[in-house]
Design a binder for these strands. Sequence first.
DNA 1: AATGAATGAGTCTTCATTCAT
DNA 2: GATGAATGAAGACTCATTCAT
Lengths: 205, 205, 205, 205
Amino acid sequence: MIQAQTKRRLKQTNHGTKILEAAESIFAEKGFYLTTVEEIAQKADLGKGTIYLHFENKRGLFLSVIERKLDILLKKIERGIKKGKSPAEKIRLATEIHLNFLEKNRNFFKIIHIFSNQFKKGMGEELFKKVAAKNSRYLEILQDLIEQAIKGGEIKPLNSKKLAVILVGIVHSLTVYWISQNEKGSLFKDHLLAWEIFWEGAKAL
Amino acid sequence: MIQAQTKRRLKQTNHGTKILEAAESIFAEKGFYLTTVEEIAQKADLGKGTIYLHFENKRGLFLSVIERKLDILLKKIERGIKKGKSPAEKIRLATEIHLNFLEKNRNFFKIIHIFSNQFKKGMGEELFKKVAAKNSRYLEILQDLIEQAIKGGEIKPLNSKKLAVILVGIVHSLTVYWISQNEKGSLFKDHLLAWEIFWEGAKAL
Amino acid sequence: MIQAQTKRRLKQTNHGTKILEAAESIFAEKGFYLTTVEEIAQKADLGKGTIYLHFENKRGLFLSVIERKLDILLKKIERGIKKGKSPAEKIRLATEIHLNFLEKNRNFFKIIHIFSNQFKKGMGEELFKKVAAKNSRYLEILQDLIEQAIKGGEIKPLNSKKLAVILVGIVHSLTVYWISQNEKGSLFKDHLLAWEIFWEGAKAL
Amino acid sequence: MIQAQTKRRLKQTNHGTKILEAAESIFAEKGFYLTTVEEIAQKADLGKGTIYLHFENKRGLFLSVIERKLDILLKKIERGIKKGKSPAEKIRLATEIHLNFLEKNRNFFKIIHIFSNQFKKGMGEELFKKVAAKNSRYLEILQDLIEQAIKGGEIKPLNSKKLAVILVGIVHSLTVYWISQNEKGSLFKDHLLAWEIFWEGAKAL
DNA sequence: AATGAATGAGTCTTCATTCAT
DNA sequence: GATGAATGAAGACTCATTCAT
C-alpha cells in the first residue's frame, strides 16, 4: 500500500520534472514561439494533455522552467558566498558560482536570455512577476555586497547598482561568447578573467 | 516622363525606408513573433502586399531592419575611431560612439537583442549570414584595437577576443539597465564608467 | 456479511441517484455541451471514473436524467387524471399536474428544452428512442382525451393531435415565460389561465 | 472601373450572405456545438479563414444568422399588421405572417429554438443583447395589440403579457409539431386553427 | 506598382473516455 | 467497486503569404 502510494507519488514527481527538463532543452534550442507543446510532450514521453495536468499552459510551463533553475542558482549563490570573508571575496565567489552554474546549465542561460525578450507584452500576472523578481534577486545580492565593499573602502565610491549590472554583464557576455564558440573549453575558467577585469577596474586605489 | 520615373523611384525608396522604420519600432516593441505584417503595413501606411514587393518575407524584413542599422553604426565607429591617437583612445572612442548610438536608437538595441535569441533554428541562408557577420564586425574591430594595445604595452596580455567580448558586454548590460529603468538620464554619460572599469581592469600595470 | 452486501447495494443505488441529481442541476444550468463530466463528478462527490460505472457515457447520463423525470411525471399524470369525471376535466387535471410538476422541477423543464435541440444528429439508438417515446407519451394521452371529448361533443371536431400540441405549447410557453421572469410568483396558478384559453377556444359551441 | 468595383462589392456582399446561409442551414441541422467552422466554410465554398474576415468568431456568426432573419421577420410583421383595422385583426395578421414566415424559414426557427437554450452562460456583450432584444420585440408588439384589444373590449381583461406569451406558444408548438412531422402539409394553414383557439379563448364574452 | 481579400497550414487547448492501481 | 492520471482526437482561431484586380 505504501509502496503503491510512493510509486505513484514518485511517478508524478517524475512527470513534473520530466516535463520541465524536456521543456528546458527544447525552449533553449528553439525559443518560446517555435517550440510546440506537442514536441515537449513527445520528448517527455507523455501525451499532450498530460502537460496540461501539470502546467496551466505553455507560457506557465516556460516560466516554471525558469523559476526552478533560478531557485537553484540563487540558493547556490546565497549559500556559497557565506564562505567569503570580505565583501570583495564574496563578490568573487558569486561570480565563480554563477559562471560555474551557467557552464553546467547552458540551456538555462539560453532560456533566461529568451525570457527577457519574448515577453514584452501581455504579462502582469502572478507567476511572471515572481520570476521577474527572482531574476533580479541576484543583482540585488551583488549590489549589497558592492555597497559593503564601498563602505569598507575596498571599491571606489561609484554607483553600486551600475557596478552590479556591469559585473553581471561581463559574466553574461563571456557566457554568450562561450556558447557561440560551441562551448569549447571551460567557461568556468573565465571567472578569473571576469573577476580580474572587474576588480582591477573597480577597486579603490 | 523622366520626372515621373524619378518621382516613382523616389517613392519606392521612401516605401522601403518607411517600411523599415515602421518595422523597427514594432519589432522592438513586441518582438518578432508577436509582430504581424499587417501591423507593420498599417504603421507604414501601405498595403500588406506592398511589404512583399520590397522584402522577401517577414523574416527578411526583420533582418533588413538590423542590417541597415548595423551599417550605420559600423560606419560611425570606423570613421570615429580614426580620431583616436593610440589604440587605447580608439577603444574608448568606440565605446563612446557605441553607447551614444544605442541611446539614440534604443529600438535598434532591443531588436539586436531579439535577433540573437529568436533565430536559433532555420537560419543558414545568405541574408542571415551577412547580418551575423556584420553583427560581429564591431567585435573584430575592438579585438584588433585591443591586440594593438597589447602589443603596444598598454593592455595586459590577455585573450584579446575575450576582452573585446567583455567590453561589449559592459556596454550592453548598461544599456539593458538603462532601458529597464525606463531610460531615465543619459546612457551616453555611462561611457566613462564603462571605460573606467574596463580600462583600469585591463590596462598594463 | 449480508449487512455489508445490503449496505453496498444501497450505496450503489445512492450513487446512481446522486449522479443523476448532480447531472440534472448542472445540465439545466449550462446545457449539454458546456457541462463537463468532471463537474458532475465533483458535484456528486465521486470520482470521474465512477460515473462511467453507472452510465455508458455522458450522453447516456443525459438521457437517463430525462428518462427518470419523465417516468415520474407520466406516472403522476396517469394517476391524477383518473379522478376526472369527463374527458374535459381530465384534460384540465393533466394541465394542472403538468404545470405543478414543472414549477417544482424547473431544472427538468430546462433539460427537456435542451433535449429537443441538442440532439439533432447522432441519435438512433435504443435509449434515445425510448426517451423520445416517453417524451411524446404525454401528448398521446392528451390526444386520446381530446378525441374522447370530441366524440362526447365537448370539444369542436378539430384535429385532436394539433389541439394536444397547442395545449402543451401553451403550458410550455407559460413555463418559459415564468422562468425568464426569474420564476417570480407561482407558475401553478397559471394553469387556470392556460385552461381557460384552451377550453374556451376549443369547446363546442 | 466601375464594373470592377461593383463586381467586387457584389462579391463581398455575396460572401457575407453565402456564409450566413451556409451557417444557417448547418446550425439548424446540427446545433451550435456540433457545427464546425470548417464545415460552414466548405458549404460556403470558402476558406476557413475567410469566415473570420466577415465575423468575429463562431458565436458572432451564429448571432448574426439570427439577427438577419429576425430583422426580416419583424419588418414583415410591422408592415403587415398595418392592414388590419382592429387590434384583433392585427393580431390575427401577425399570427398569419409569423406562421407563414416560419414555414418558409424552417431553418431559422430551429436556430431560434437553439438560441434560447445554448447560450445560458457567458453572454453579456453587445451583439447578444441586441439579438435578445429583437427576439422579444415581437412579443412586445403582440402585447401592445392585446392591450388595445382589451381596452376596446374585444378581449377579456387578462394579463396582456401572458396572453401574448400564450399566442406565441401556440404558434411555436404548431411549428415544432409540423417540423417533427417532417413538414408535411402547409404550416401556414394552421394559422386559422391557432387563431381560432386563441381568439375564442381570449375574446370578451 | 499597389492592394487587401482569400487561404489553410499550424497550434494551443479542452475534455470524454480509458485503465492501472 | 472506485479512482483520477493519462491520453489524443477534435476544433477554434491566427497570420504569413499569394494573386487577381
